[in-house]
Simulated scan of single mutants.
Amino acid sequence: MNVTRCFIAMAVTDEVKRRAQNLINILAASEADVKWVETHNMHITLSFLGDVTPEETVEISRAAMRGAEQVSSFDFTIAGPGAFPDIERPRTLWLGLSQGAEQFCQMQSAIAEELAAIGYPETARKFHPHLSLGRIKRPTPQLKNLTELLKEYADYEAGVSPAMEASIYASQLERRGPKYTLIGHAELG
């Protein structure tokens, strides 16, 4: 059976990506063991769907369109680095939203409801819109340096992006990292 890993995400502007990369360069000086997100792969994930068939991608795209049209377009500001589960025990590093988070959550919820109606249940975790920067490969003594840098740059701003459409992507895992292919759009109302 032919399947593709699929997710729905919001793109960010090149300027936001450039400024996020600047922050990565600052954080990388900590020498912590981190797998950093490549600039061209930066986005805000709305829903990860896993392996789906080509037929399912059509239904997923339709569901995303129905959900997205329920929310008007808006601008959001990427700012404030953080970590999951928290800064003192970082596993995933990210930039959050200082403006537009409420609209982002409404959009994600509307899309998630439409996906649930076609058999893709919502995750139990509360949605927290963020732009991933990297994942800790393994804890090392340098993690303390990284934590200090995250605190030092707590007010870092990466800029404003428009939310006009969600994008549906196919993801292929390759040796160098994931490769994303755009397979659909879902315009906001």
Rank of each mutant, 00 (worst) to 15 (best):
M1H: 07
M1T: 12
V3L: 12
T4M: 13
C6W: 07
F7M: 04
M10K: 05
A11W: 03
V12E: 04
V12P: 13
T13E: 11
R18L: 01
R18Y: 06
R18C: 01
Q21N: 07
N22W: 06
N22G: 01
L23R: 15
I24N: 09
N25K: 14
N25H: 13
I26T: 11
I26V: 15
A29M: 06
E31L: 11
E31Q: 14
E31K: 15
K35A: 12
H43V: 07
H43T: 08
L49T: 05
D51E: 15
D51P: 01
V52N: 10
T53V: 10
E55S: 11
E56D: 11
T57S: 14
T57H: 03
V58F: 04
I60G: 00
I60S: 03
I60F: 05
A64T: 00
R66P: 00
Q70I: 02
S73F: 08
F74A: 03
F76K: 04
I78P: 00
I78Y: 00
G80D: 01
A83K: 10
D86L: 00
D86R: 12
E88K: 12
P90A: 06
P90Y: 02
W94E: 09
L95H: 03
S98C: 05
E102W: 02
E102V: 14
E102I: 14
Q103K: 15
Q103I: 02
Q103H: 13
C105N: 09
Q106D: 11
Q106S: 10
A110T: 05
I111Q: 00
A112I: 02
E114A: 12
A116Q: 10
A117N: 08
A117F: 01
G119P: 09
Y120K: 14
E122K: 15
E122N: 08
A124Y: 02
G134S: 05
K137E: 01
K137G: 03
P139N: 13
T140S: 10
L143R: 06
K144F: 03
K144G: 03
N145E: 10
L146A: 07
L146F: 04
L149V: 05
L149E: 03
D155M: 10
G159T: 09
S161D: 06
I168S: 02
Q172S: 09
L173E: 09
E174T: 10
G177D: 07
T181E: 08
H185V: 00
H185G: 00
A186Y: 00
G189A: 12
G189H: 10
